[in-house]
Every structure is written in C-alpha cells, then in structure tokens.
Design a binder for these strands. Structure first.
Lengths: 341, 341
DNA sequence: CTTAGCACTCTCATAGTGAGAGTGCTAATT
DNA sequence: AATTAGCACTCTCACTATGAGAGTGCTAAG
C-alpha cells in the first residue's frame, strides 16, 4: 500500500533527525532503514512529503528535516502504540524520588532535576496550585509590633507563610485564640471556599462585629491572599550541550524564558487542562518565545484531583518517546505519593 | 613624581577596559586621558607595568589589558576615596525593595533581581543562615499517620518546615501539648544552642524518661536538622549580553556554576567573613570555575549580628565602583529592615 | 628623559576555490 | 505504470590566500 510507504519514510526521517540533527538524505534513508528501494524512489516520496508540509529542505541539495507537522505525525503515531516504553530511564527517576517522599517541595525540586538529567532537556515542576487545596491547619505567631506571621498547612503538605500587618498589636494569647477559632471553622475546607466564605462574613460582619471573629477574618483574608505557586526549572546546562543551542541568540531566548517564571507557570497551567501526557510541538505553542521548543507535560493528582504539573521542555527535535515515558512515570509516582493516606 | 605617572596610566587602562573590552593602546591612553606625553613614552610605562604584572598583552601588537593584579590595584585605590559614590543607581535599588519589607524571602529574591538588573551582572542573595538565628516559636501539625509537620519561626522572619516521621501516631491534642512545652522551653534561644541542649537532654533522658518530654525532644531534634540556607540568583540573561560571554564554553561554565547552588552558598559563606564590602577578583578565587569571575559581596545584619550575604558576580572586567555602591546600599537597607523592632 | 620614525608582528575580515553531498529531471528498465 | 540509473546542477563548508589596520619595540635624535 502506498500510504504505508509514505509513513515509513516520514517515520525514518524523524527518527534519524531526532538521533542526529543533520538533514536526512534519500540515500541514507534507504540504507539505514532497510528499504528495498533506490534512493531515487525515496526522493520522490520525500518530495511528496515536502509538498504535504511534513518535511522541509533547508536549501536545495540538502537532505530533509521534519517540520512541526512532521513531528506531530510522529508523536500521534507514537501514542497509538503505547505499549512500547523503555523502562530503564523511568526506573532511574523513581529511584531518585523514592528517598524524599516526605517533603513535597524537595520532591518537586528533585523531580525537575531528575527529569532534566535523565532526558538532557529542561525539567520543570509546578508546585500544587493552592486554590483547590484543602486547609489542614493555620497558625499565628506574633512577629513584630502589629505584625503577625501566619502559617498555613494544606493537605498536600504545603506550608505557606505570610506576614500580616495589623492596625492593633495583639498578644500571642489573643493570636492563639484567634487561630483556634480559625482552625475549628475552616480546617478541611478548600482555600477558595474559605475565601468565598470570608467575603460573605465580611459583608455580614458590619452588623454583628464580634471583635475576635472580625479580627480573625481580617487576618485570614490577608493570609489567604498569597502568590501563586512556585516552579522548579532545572537543566539549563544540559540543554546548552545540544547542537541546536550553539547559537547565542537562542541561548539568550531560552534563558530569558527560564528567568521569567510567571510565563512558565501560566504556560504549563493552561497546557495541563486534559489529563495524561500532553505534547505541544514548536509552532503549536502560543507563546512567541517558545515557538522553537516542544513541551511534554502531565498533571499529577492528589486523590483524583489534579493539583500540579510537571514536564520536559526541549527542542522540537526531541526524543519524544523517552520524554513521554519519563514525564508519565514521574507524574504517576507523584500521584501515588500524594494520595497515600 | 614617577610613581604618580605609572599609577595614572594603570588607572587609565583599567577604566578604559572596564568601559569597553578592547585592548588599550598607548596612543589611545594619551588622547583620552589627557596625558601631555607622546604615545612612545606611555609605551615605555606600559612595558614597565607589564613587567610588574599589572598589565598583559594578548599578543604582540595588541594593546594591553589589565591582569587580576591590575584590577586589585584599581579596587584598593577605589576603596581609599570612598566619598565618591554614584547615588542614582543606589536609589533605584532601595525603591524596589521598599515595597516588600515585610517578607524576608521576597525581599531577598527582589534584592538579587534588583542587583542584577541595575548592575547587569548576576545578583545573588543568601537567606539568613539559621544556626545563629533565635527561635521565635515552633508549631506542630498532625499530617499523615505517624507524620508530623513541624513549623519553626525565627527572629528574622524565616519560616522553616519539615515533615517528621514518628514511630507512634500522636493526636493533634498531644502535639499541641508538645509544642506548648517546646515553646516555653526553647523560644528565644539560638538554634544551635537548642541543638546543643537537645544532645545533653538526650543523654540524661534515658534515666528520667517522661514520655511527653522525650517525644518533644525527638521531634525537635529532627525538626532542627534542616538544610542550610537557600540562595537566590538572578540575571543570567543580563550576563549573556556581555561580550566576554559570547563564547559558548564560558556560558556553559557559568550556567553550571549557577545550577550548583551549594557551591555558591559555600563560596559566599566563606567570603563574607569580614564586615563591609569585600571584593574577590578572578584568580584570587579559590573555586576553579570562578577563576575568570569577580565577586563583590557584603553581609547584612540583624542588629549587629551578621546573618546573611548578598553580592554581585560578574566578569573580572567589572564596573567595580558601581557594583560596590550597589551591594553596599542594598546590604545597609536589609540591615535596617531586619533590625527595626 | 622624551619623542619621532620606522620596520615588524599579529589579527581580522574578505574573497576565492574545490570537494562533497544531495537534489531534480529525464530516459531507460522491469 | 512504477522503479531506477545517470547526470547536470546547486548549495554548503572548510581551507587558503591576501591586505588593511592597529600597535608595538627599538633606535637615534631632540
């Protein structure tokens, strides 16, 4: 069947280019990928593939390289035969994470490191987003005059702290009473539920105005208004070793992207809508700085609620099979750890 | 006086090279730095300076560039006339920090960012080292079965948390009693004092073995055993704009150095022995990866106790005057914020 | 002690050249 | 009708002059 041959050629070009970023010639394809055809025939096929937008020629008389559309075909095809995953690298990841399962922050940091060293691309890990997290407990310390240090613990093991400025100076005893009240009232609720409730309380409050409660509410409102999650990014030096980043301009681009953590957070957040592993290739990316990069992401869950995202960022010429395997394994491991009672 | 002339020439070469990293020729020195001498004379002086090890010639028939020893002369000379500091940039730093004085972590992160964007080099900031910090309060949450989340607050406003694994499963009520005990016993002491005391207690403990106390001690011992401080590093993309980092090899070096945060922490820690601003130039640096970089650091204090370090890392061809001014201003500001009651 | 003059050295940007790889097209073959 | 061999053509890349430019060191004169 003709289609079959076209696919095989495209597949061969992508595989070859992923291993080695040189334009792929017709002769090379016939030899390395055991086609019983002459280079001339392959040339015709490749010309067709170029017309269809799967391949691209840097210049006449160079071989072909895959376009983003070409990679997309490859990845989608990969997804169909999910069975074949190389377990070796996946094991390495899990071993590295197993030792520190108790500390969620360390766990995520190590995840990003592990992803990067094993894949040789950038490893990223978003901390759990806190709006959906449930509050385990809250605690207040008197810090300086009129300042209270609030500390929250969530079900995922995240500790958030924030220094709140008050008009009056409360004693530690007052604060203990307030935190007792807050714990009895709010523990077990999701952060955004609490926020919503506080807004309601404050509306009513003008009437009833119990000082303890009103103070508690004031403090809590401030405390819950924290910055969005953090992100761990590792592996810049890994990526610099890749031939596609031998260009100074691109290095600057990527290092700017890394420094702008907000961008990365937003990006990963929007990407991780659907469950399971997602792949975004080059120009499919909406952020302009990322048009030459591919991203492989997955969410990790607490119970069956997705709370955070991890992933790998690399050149479009990425070893997608490996990347997908790694991200998938790591996400599943995190989910397991977080979900254990 | 002859010495005077030699100094002026050396000064001129350093200033010129700092502004613009081209080897400096004799003719250029006479013109730009208003010597009433001919290039030939300057050439002789420069040859002398080379013999003395202050200047270096990349190749015959190039101008001279300063050696590390040359920069050292320049910086030491700079220190003598401390009066002249450009206040403009310093203001910018303070303005950026003023808004977030309440949160020590945010403050340090912003410090490192501000230092890097204003200086165009790398900005670094170490969080306060915790051994000498005094404990403000401790709090325990039951997390999972047999796991306790411990949260410490120190005088500097640092919150440390750690998940401790116990043999028995304690209720939140037990934990509250334990934390009350720990607070009454240890609040106000320095962390390393507490550690020392715990060791003593544990020795005695075998005899008296009050379960509450012994449990408290066990938890506390674990909780106090936390990782050393964190470090914020900003400005990689700034640095990549500099001509000395147009070389791929050097970029890799520097990005590896940045990723290895432990190295940076150790480096800055040892550097900040003496008070005030310190400058380490190129080969004076002990770490091999840093031999081509200069570091300007200062400690910041809480009260009169130095607790942390901030600094600027850049090429040996650094605008030392600006860097010193910036680091000094920022350190003084942090000290002020931390020390206010 | 200073300076003018000059030969010398080294770098860097530019242009030219030829090997090598790979293509597209055409005509012959199966 | 599909495949293949043959061939002219194109483009890149590494290599090699080549020459301008900048700056030096040295010598001899001021």
């Amino acid at each position: 069947m003709l289609d079959e041959r076209i696919h095989r050629v495209l597949w061969a070009v992508v595989e070859s280019y992923i291993t080695n970023p040189d334009p792929v010639g017709s002769r090379f394809v016939t030899k390395k990928y055991a086609f019983n055809l002459s280079p001339a025939t392959i040339r015709n096929v490749m010309a067709d593939l170029e017309d269809m937008g799967f391949l691209h020629q840097p210049h006449t008389s160079a071989g072909r390289i895959p376009t983003d559309k070409g990679y997309r075909f490859y990845v989608d095809y990969l997804a169909k035969r999910e069975a074949s995953r190389d377990a070796d690298h996946a094991d390495e990841i899990i071993q590295r994470l197993e030792t520190i399962r108790n500390d969620i922050n360390a766990l995520l940091k190590e995840t990003s490191k592990a992803l990067s060293t094993v894949s040789h691309y950038l490893g990223v890990a978003l901390t759990p987003r806190s709006e959906k997290a449930t509050l385990r407990g809250i605690n207040l310390f008197r810090y300086k005059e009129g300042q209270v240090m609030t500390v929250l613990l969530t079900d995922e093991g995240i500790v958030k702290n924030k220094c709140v400025q008050l008009a009056v100076d409360l004693t530690q005893r007052d604060l203990n009473r307030i935190s007792d009240y807050l714990n009895s009232e709010f523990a077990g609720l999701a952060i955004d539920e609490i926020r919503a409730r506080i807004v309601r309380e404050m509306r009513r409050d003008k009437a009833l105005c119990d000082t303890l409660i009103s103070r508690a509410i004031t403090i809590c409102r401030e405390a819950l208004y924290f910055d969005c999650g953090d992100v761990f990014i590792s592996g810049l030096s890994e990526v610099l070793g890749l031939p596609e980043f031998s260009d100074l301009q691109r290095i600057k681009e990527i290092s700017r992207a890394i420094e702008d953590k907000h961008l990365i957070i937003k990006l990963l957040d929007t990407l991780s809508q659907s469950e399971g592993v997602n792949v975004v290739i080059g120009s499919e990316n909406l952020a302009p700085d990322m048009k030459k990069l591919s991203i492989v992401v997955s969410t990790y869950n607490e119970g069956d609620r997705p709370v955070g995202t991890i992933g790998i960022i690399g050149p479009t010429r990425m070893n997608y099979l490996k990347a997908i395997t790694l991200v998938d394994t790591a996400a599943k491991f995190l989910t397991k750890v977080l979900s254990e009672k």
